[in-house]
Design a protein around this nucleic acid. Structure first.
Lengths: 160, 160
DNA sequence: CGGATTTAGTATCAGATGAAACTAGATCGC
DNA sequence: GCGATCTAGTTTCATCTGATACTAAATCCG
């Protein structure tokens, strides 16, 4: 059984707790690496990643693409602009929007960091079978969408 | 292949990203529930849980037991003290320490929240096979300890 | 013993976070 | 066409977070 019979709940076996602790450990590790080596925050790094993948995007598109708050994206963009790692040009059809693109320097930085990011991932999953990693990713996706569904809709009776 | 050949890195498939996004979604859901219904923060709730499980503990023991900063534990304890959900008595052998225990009211609150917490977990893992959930927990543990190892030791050449 | 170091817990500060208010531009509906 | 509403993005504010500094008690060791 997952939880004991008495209280019905043990913190160590409680999934949201395990998830949070594991995520904090991993995020902390990665955040420190990017900060120390490149002066980037995690939101800034995510922004660089999606711009490298998808090319020019508006902040709104970035919000939709990554799961970040628009305020977070705004601040990350400002920081990157100041360092000239991204450029912004007016949107051809919408005066409120700007299109963000990586500068040459931003691109260079991305290709410098990417191998490091992959090395971290590889070190983290060392010892796991590839199919375990794939399963893990699928399970994480399911948890995410389950949480989203529970947060969005009116709550089912069991949680009311 | 997990990542594309060009940049070698796709954000959507990047494990630390998936982990962080899933964890934020789940934590946010749970944090809102505890806050709205019981006025508890997540650290406060964790504290209540370990006290319910293990009985009287010093803050130091709580820090070791949960993976929280001592500052976080200190603040959580103060909040719970103010609401008289926990009591503190002098440690018999160490004048710096105090032993925290749940008050009657704290105990009552715990047994009120626990079923809700379990219902949330059940809703999150609905549709997953039990062995998938177990595997997930084991994988999360491995990631956590791998991250801890990478953070602690001097870095291996691949990450230097 | 008694000074030097370590440890439990608190206080302070600087940075990050997201909710809510706000500005300016776009879209809708009459 | 033009006011009402909506949307992209920024600013503000209140809160959370953890690093650092600090206080008081304990332990170590000469």
């Amino acid at each position: 059984m997952t939880h004991d019979a008495e209280s019905g709940l043990k913190l160590d076996g409680y999934l949201p707790y395990r998830l949070s602790v594991a995520s904090n450990a991993v995020s902390g590790l990665i955040a420190r690496a990017y900060q120390d080596r490149f002066g980037l925050t995690i939101p800034q790094w995510r922004l660089i990643c999606v711009l490298a993948e998808d090319g020019g995007l508006t902040q709104n598109q970035i919000v939709a693409r990554t799961v970040m708050d628009k305020v977070t994206v705004s601040r990350a963009a400002q920081g990157l602009l100041k360092r000239r790692l991204v450029g912004r040009s007016d949107h051809h059809a919408d005066g409120r929007s700007h299109v963000l693109t990586l500068t040459h320097e931003g691109s260079r930085l991305h290709s410098e960091i990417a191998p490091l990011a992959l090395a971290y991932e590889a070190a983290l999953i060392a010892g796991l079978a590839p199919e375990e990693v794939n399963l893990l990713k699928r399970l994480l996706s399911r948890l995410q969408s389950a949480a989203g569904a529970l947060a969005g809709e009116s709550l089912p009776p069991s949680l009311r």
